[in-house]
């Protein structure tokens, strides 16, 4: 039983926008099978997704453009199903199947 739990994954889509796609193979949309629980057995939340993306999906060595001190770096918005993650519990939000998580870099040019 614990075997099946350990391989269970949550299917989600992860999008990058505002330039962040450059860190992820220049691809704006990724289908991700996220392990349903982290290594400590806790249900997958946004914090876990972020570390998972850094380890498994990022093609660029410049991880500091995405995370700083193991949190998302300032200047990146996280959207859960098109709503600001602050409306959903931020890093503690528990990922649900078919969620869409968008990371968008805030822009300042004009």
């Amino acid at each position: 039983m614990s075997d099946t739990i350990e391989v269970a994954t949550i299917p989600i889509t992860v999008d990058f926008s505002g330039g962040l796609e450059m860190l992820f193979d220049n691809q704006r949309r990724h289908s991700v099978s996220l392990p349903a629980v982290d290594s400590g057995g806790k249900p997958a939340d946004i914090a876990f997704l972020i570390s998972h993306l850094c380890e498994k999906l990022m093609k660029d060595p410049r991880a500091e453009l995405f995370v700083l001190d193991s949190h998302i770096r300032p200047g990146i918005l996280v959207l859960i199903n098109d709503a600001d993650w602050e409306l959903e519990g931020e890093e503690d939000y528990k990922i649900q199947p078919r969620d869409n998580i968008l990371f968008v870099s805030t822009l300042h040019g004009g």
């Binding site: 330039g19 870099s105 805030t106 822009l107 300042h108 040019g109 004009g110």
Partner: peptide, 9 residues
């Protein structure tokens, strides 16, 4: 509003 390269907000 803001914009750079191929993105706008």
């Amino acid at each position: 509003a803001a914009s750079i390269q191929k993105s706008g907000q």
